[in-house]
């Protein structure tokens, strides 16, 4: 069966799908950027800054494409800087606070493991442009997952202090991870058209990797029935407004300002 190439232009489902991918990358990139000059060591400061840069680069490519799909002449900057909280489509996990380094590393590990599997699959998307972005992003996200996974083990299986902190980070963030795998109509439409995938398909493999690392790190997976969601539909925690007030300050204060 050959898939019919999708024509761009006012494709709302694809636009939404690209916003979700781009917003996850932008907001997590912004969060990691908050670490710059505050990292626990100079090497980790650089590592967090570099991961932020990868994510913001991915967001730029996704927003640039989203703007063209939407067909209203919006640029990558318009999409990043001129939308408000309710227009953002990122999952709740990526907007959660950095906490200490242990919590940041848990968030990066949970998200990076998901994103590397996601982009691996999207590398074969019937949408050539999305496939191209995914082929770049998969290498970067696999690297992030490895880096953060090694730190989860080092800290979890470290001292009493580091173990306690990284366990606390896991306890706090774990409920938010489930939203990554909740499919809605947009996901299903994209999967049917061969452009995207149904994220619930990724959960078993993700859980296997995560459980393995958590075990090596001598950490315990929290048990909880609380599964907050809604980020993909624009219902966010209070954190996002604060993130945007930093991220968008220049464009709000000096509309149209350029370097």
């Amino acid at each position: 069966m050959t898939a019919k190439p999708e024509t761009a232009g006012g494709d709302e489902a694809l636009f939404e799908y690209l916003l979700r991918l781009g917003d996850n990358a932008l907001i997590l990139g912004q969060r990691l950027g908050e670490w710059v000059s505050n990292g626990p060591t100079v090497e980790l400061d650089i590592a967090l800054g570099n991961q932020s840069l990868d994510l913001i680069g991915q967001a730029r490519m996704l927003f640039d494409y989203a703007g063209r799909v939407e067909g209203k002449g919006r640029s990558e900057d318009d999409i990043a800087f001129l939308r408000d909280v309710l227009d953002f489509r990122n999952v709740l996990l990526v907007e959660q606070p950095n906490g200490d380094f242990g919590q940041t590393v848990i968030r990066q590990f949970l998200y990076g493991t998901y994103a590397s599997a996601l982009y691996e699959r999207l590398s074969g998307s019937t949408d050539n442009e999305l496939a191209g972005i995914a082929q770049k992003a998969v290498k970067e996200m696999a690297y992030h997952a490895r880096h953060s996974g090694e730190w989860v083990v080092r800290l979890g299986d470290g001292t009493e202090e580091s173990h306690g902190r990284v366990q606390a980070g896991l306890d706090f963030l774990w409920p938010y991870a489930h939203e990554l795998f909740i499919a809605d109509d947009i996901d299903r439409t994209m999967a049917e058209r061969g452009i995207g995938i149904d994220p619930s398909d990724l959960k078993d493999d993700w859980l296997e990797v995560v459980t393995g690392v958590i075990g090596r790190a001598t950490l315990t997976l929290p048990e909880t029935n609380w599964v907050p969601d809604g980020g993909k539909q624009g219902r966010h925690t209070e954190n996002l407004g604060y993130i945007l007030s930093d991220l968008q300050f220049m464009q709000r204060a000096y509309p149209g300002a350029e370097w």
Binding site: L53, D54, L55, G57, R60, I133, K136, E140
Partner: peptide
């Protein structure tokens, strides 16, 4: 082609 997505 870029080396990394965010290569400045």
């Amino acid at each position: 082609t870029p080396t990394y997505s965010g290569c400045p």
